[in-house]
Each structure stands twice: as C-alpha cells, then as structure tokens.
Write a protein that binds this DNA or RNA. Structure first.
Lengths: 236, 236
DNA sequence: CTCGTTTTAATTGTCAACAATTCTAGCTCT
DNA sequence: AGAGCTAGAATTGTTGACAATTAAAACGAG
C-alpha cells in the first residue's frame, strides 16, 4: 500500500461534511444513545468548530432522518420503534430488490462471484466468533449488492438506510445460532445473482430481510432499545 | 368565531423550511433554469432573510439532490442528463412498486376505488386539454398511490422524486396523442390494485414508468428485464 | 396538599461582520 | 501574438454576539 499513487484529492472536504460524517459514525455505532439530546453549543465546543457549520451538519442528518428537530427545543437522536424499523426495512428491501433486478443481465456472473467473496468474509468472521466483523461483513454484502447496480440514486438512499440499520444493530446482541442460516441466505442470494435469476434473487432477498427484521423487532433482548429517560413528545 | 373542527397545529414553520419550500416550488416549476447559479446574497436580499437560514435551506435542497454545491463557487440548479433521469426512474419505480405490494391485502378494494377517482380527474383534465391540470392529476395519482401504502419512508423519498420529475416535466411539452394511453395505463394499475393482484399492478406500473421515461429521454430506456408478469422463473 | 402563576435558566433562531478561496482581467515576458 | 503570471473583485465559509422562545423550577393562593 504505497501512498504515492493514491494521494488524496486536493479538494478539501467542507467542514460540515466532516462534522456530519463524524456524527453519523457516532450515531451508527451507538456512541450517542437514541433519544439523547445534542446541544449545539456543547457539540461545537467539543468539536472545536463554530455553531454555523455544525448547524449545517445537523441539518443534513435531520434531512437524512437520523435526527429530529424540535423548534426551540433542540435536536434529538431518533428512537426507532418496531413499526418504524419495519417501515425502514420496507424501503430497504425495495432498494435492494431493485438493485438485484439491475444486476441480472449485465455481467451477473462476475457480480455473483463478487458477492460470494463477501459471503466468504462472513464465514471467516463467523468461525472466529467476531460479532463486529460479522456485522461489518453483513453490511458490506448489502452495500456491495447495491453498489454493483451502478445506480447512484439507489446507493445514496441505501447508505442512509444502512446507517440506521447499524444503529439498530448496535443496541442488540447477536445470537450464535442464527449466523449459520444467515450466511446461507446470503449465499443463496449471491448464487441466484450469479445464475442470472433475478426473480429468485429478489424472493430470497425478501425472505432474508424478513428474517433479519424478525431478529430486530421481536427479539426478547430488544426491550432496552428506548433510552432510560423517555420524555419523547409524540405531538410536535 | 366559526367553530373549526380540524384546527391545524399552531407550530409555526421554521424559516428555513419556508425558504426551502419556496425554492423547491420555483425549481420544480422551472422558474429558475437548470444550471443557473443561486447567489446567497442575492437570494437573501430578495427573500428578506439573512444568509444563515437561507444557507440551511440550500443545504436541504442540496441534500435532496436538487442543487449541487461547489466549494467557494456557489450553488447551482442540477441539470439532469438522460442517464440521471433514467436512474431517478429506477428508484421511483422501486418505491412505487413497493407501495403497490403493500396495498394489496389491506383494503385494496377501497384503495383501488380511490385511485380510480384520481384517474377520473385525469380524464377531466384531458378533455379540457389543460396540460397543467393533466400533469397535476398524473402526479397526484402517483403520490396518492404511495400515500395509501402508509409507509412514511416511501412517502418521504417519493416526495423528493416527484419534485425532480416535475422539474423535468416543466422543460418539455406534452404531446396529445399519448395522453389517452397514459390514462389507460393508470386505470390498469388502479384496477389491478382493486382486484388485489399485486404482481399485475407491479408489472403494469413497471411498463407505465418505462413509457413515461421514454417520453422524457431521447435514448431508449435500458432493457426492461422482467417487466412481464411471470410466476414461473424465466431462464434464458 | 394541589393547582395555578411567575420567574429563571437554557436552548435555539437570527443577524451582521470578517476571513479564506476562487475566477477573471490585465499585464509582462518570450 | 501567445503563454504565464499577478492583482483585483466577487463569492462563499466561518465566527461571535444578540434576540426570541421554550421548558422547568420556585413560589404563593385556595
């Protein structure tokens, strides 16, 4: 990895972008609890920037749906109810299903092989018992699936959805016994893509997302999703 | 005081929201040409607000994809190429198709009737030759289709997509001969929903979007892989 | 002891001024 | 005359301070 050839672009990332990226990472990995308030002054002081750029970054995250803004009250990290998680998965399934449909017909064999390599990474993570790596590989598979479609629209929407997914995953723990069938589901999708059978890939994808959703919503350990102090106002 | 039974919430819309809404409307209806630059100082002076709230509004539109921001250069209204329009329709079809799938099974008869009333509005607009009303009714149909699904995620994404669609429609003019078959396509979708046949509705929706896309772009739409309704897996 | 009012503190919303960067035009040198 | 360089103007990026609004706590009356 010689850094000579991959020197970073000269266009410096704008300050709001940097802030937004850091906040996204913090939210996605559970560093800030869902439902907690993000004070502008506090964050600005902590990050060493002024409130102007920080407000723009917050604006982006609000637009993406990661934060909710209550006028003259403040910004809060979203608390996703089961219904909202289900709703998110509806959109996510729609996006990934559309990606599947685009994959077949244009180099689906190479795409399938590519996805199978991601499945191999998942297996490696599974045998070592590394839950974080398992989660990363899982998300990498889905991100790669959408990226292979070549659709910028789908990728953009999907990126946001994966952040929300990660946020949900950060709360609960994996159970060991589901990883095996999970891997098999991914392999099934990848093989369907390699075989060029779009409908089969879509149906398998549907089933997979349904299973993943069931893990997130009906899991007994997911009762601690909402934060300790639940002072959320339903009426805004 | 006349008694109002549906008093609207007193929450006053934030200034950036108002600005964003006005700008969206202006962009969607072609009041500002695609590719033109939007100067912050000029707009702020014109709207009678400061640059702070205006920047937040611009930030939203940039996030939505209606503007592109070039650092230290300015903000410009997007110019959508044919490829980008096609890409947008991929996402739009995915969203509306997912909405269709949700419609069947839960009061699909009422939903179908509801959609058919929208088709009737299109017919009224067609006989009077009012192209603007025709366009409005067309978009109302699709917005209603997604709204009936009850999914907030789908509605949110779709709203942005319809603005971009409107922006594209503002540029070109309608040709008379396509309106009739256009109406029939909508009616077909509505009737499929009323009949509870989700797959038929999806396939008809696919075909309809392909046709609409062909009207917008000069190049032919990318090969519609599996727009046909097929229960058996096709293997070519 | 409870309900209503008032005060107070903290937060966001807004604004005007300053700094940094980029494009353009004019100039000089070859 | 053409290419390269330099100075100017215009724009955005950033900052700090001030105003408006809200929620909660303290207080007093019934």
């Amino acid at each position: 990895m010689s850094p000579r050839y991959s020197l970073e672009p000269v266009i410096q990332e704008s300050t709001p972008s940097i802030i937004a990226r850091k906040l996204r990472y913090a939210i996605a990995h559970g560093a800030v609890a869902p439902g907690s308030q993000l004070g502008e002054a506090e964050l600005a002081r902590e990050l060493g920037v002024s409130r102007g750029p920080l407000r723009e970054a917050m604006q982006r995250l609000t637009q993406e749906g990661l934060l909710i803004s209550i006028r003259n009250r403040g910004l809060f990290v979203i608390e996703m109810t089961d219904a909202e998680i289900r709703d998110m998965y509806v959109l996510r399934t729609a996006v990934e299903s559309a990606a599947c449909k685009m994959l077949v017909g244009a180099g689906h064999v190479a795409s399938g092989q590519d996805l199978l390599s991601k499945v191999a990474e998942m297996e490696n993570a599974a045998v070592t018992g590394d839950h974080a790596a398992m989660s990363d590989a899982d998300m990498a598979f889905h991100e790669h699936l959408v990226a292979l479609s070549g659709s910028r629209s789908l990728v953009r929407i999907h990126t946001t959805l994966m952040i929300e997914t990660r946020m949900c995953l950060a709360v609960l723990q994996y159970s060991h016994r589901v990883t095996d069938e999970w891997i098999e589901e991914h392999r099934g999708i990848a093989e369907a893509v390699r075989g060029g059978d779009g409908l089969l890939a879509q149906s398998r994808l549907n089933d997979h997302e349904d299973n993943a959703l069931a893990q997130l919503t009906s899991a007994p350990a997911s009762a601690s999703i909402d934060s300790r102090r639940t002072r959320t106002r339903t009426r805004s």
